[in-house]
């Protein structure tokens, strides 16, 4: 049987992959995918804690409800974020972050 540490390390590696996407990639849409990857890593550790921290013999369902809420908030966030990317593309004709330097000092 896998231990809790196995799941937590898998979740941490997935988070690192998402962080790597955000830090290293230059396309705004791929950066957004990296954000999704990081949210899912957090979900995995929540579900692992729910399975390993039993409450009177059952899984801790509060954690799973939190995952449910995170997924629904993430869905709303993706819809709004992609709409922002589309209107950004209309205004600037680019999705490359290095071309968007208006706020740069």
């Amino acid at each position: 049987m896998p231990t809790l540490a196995n799941y937590l390390i898998a979740s941490g590696l997935l988070f690192a992959a998402g962080l790597g996407v955000v830090m290293l990639r230059r396309s705004i849409i791929v950066i957004f995918m990296g954000l999704e990857l990081m949210l899912n890593a957090a979900n995995l550790s929540l579900v692992a804690f729910s399975r390993y921290g039993l409450v009177s013999g059952h899984q801790n369902y509060n954690a799973q409800i939190l995952v449910f809420f995170i997924i629904s908030v993430a869905a709303a966030e993706v819809a709004v974020g992609l709409a922002i990317i589309v209107s950004l593309y209309r205004a600037r004709q680019t999705t490359h972050v290095e071309d968007l330097d208006t706020l740069k000092f």
């Binding site: 799941y7 995995l44 579900v47 729910s50 799973q64 995952v67």
Partner: peptide, 13 residues
Amino acid sequence: LAALYVTLDATFI
């Protein structure tokens, strides 16, 4: 990741 949730007995998630 969904398959990992199933190994954690969280089928609904």
